Amino acid sequence: MLNSPALADGAKLVGRILLALMFVLAGYSKISGYAGTQQYMASAGVPAILLPLVIAVELLGGLMVVLGWKTRLAALALAGFTLAATL
């Protein structure tokens, strides 16, 4: 049972969903609190004009990972975004 391909595929799907959920929820919260997020970004010295790009990367990248479409590209974009946000 532990070597079941179906179980392995299911585990990969659950892993992708959980990973992507973090980014999708963050993007959605930025949409619902758009003005507050703009103010927070401005206070950190980040141009508020980048907010739509941030939202797009989080939402679209997360959805691409869940759907398994261009997963490596999406994961690379999300990793780059995470690194930039950390700095």
Rank of each mutant, 00 (worst) to 15 (best):
L87F: 13
L87H: 06
Y34L: 11
S29G: 00
A42V: 03
S43V: 00
V66A: 04
T82W: 04
A85F: 13
F23H: 04
I49W: 11
L60E: 02
V24Q: 04
A26I: 01
L78W: 02
S32T: 13
F81H: 04
A8N: 13
V14R: 04
S4Y: 11
L18G: 11
Y40W: 14
L50E: 05
G68H: 12
A85S: 14
F23Q: 01
A75Q: 13
G10V: 00
A85W: 14
P52N: 08
L50M: 14
G61V: 04
G61I: 02
L53Q: 03
T71M: 09
L21G: 14
L53E: 00
T86H: 07
L19W: 00
F81L: 07
D9R: 10
L78P: 07
A8F: 07
L50S: 12
L19P: 04
G62R: 07
L63F: 10
A84K: 01
L63V: 14
D9T: 02
N3E: 14
S4G: 07
Y40L: 13
D9V: 00
T37H: 10
A77Q: 01
V46D: 05
A75G: 14
Y40C: 00
L18C: 10
V54I: 15
M64F: 11
P5A: 05
A48P: 05
A56M: 11
M22A: 09
G27N: 10
L53W: 05
P52K: 08
I31Y: 05
V57W: 01
A35T: 15
L19T: 04
P47I: 04
K12P: 00
R16H: 09
D9W: 02
A26N: 14
A20N: 08
F81W: 09
G27C: 04
L21R: 11
E58Y: 05
P5I: 02
A42D: 11
L67S: 13
L18K: 08
A75Y: 03
M41V: 00
G33I: 03
A79W: 06
V54H: 11
L53C: 01
Q38E: 15
G61T: 08
I31T: 03
G61E: 03
T37R: 03
S29N: 15
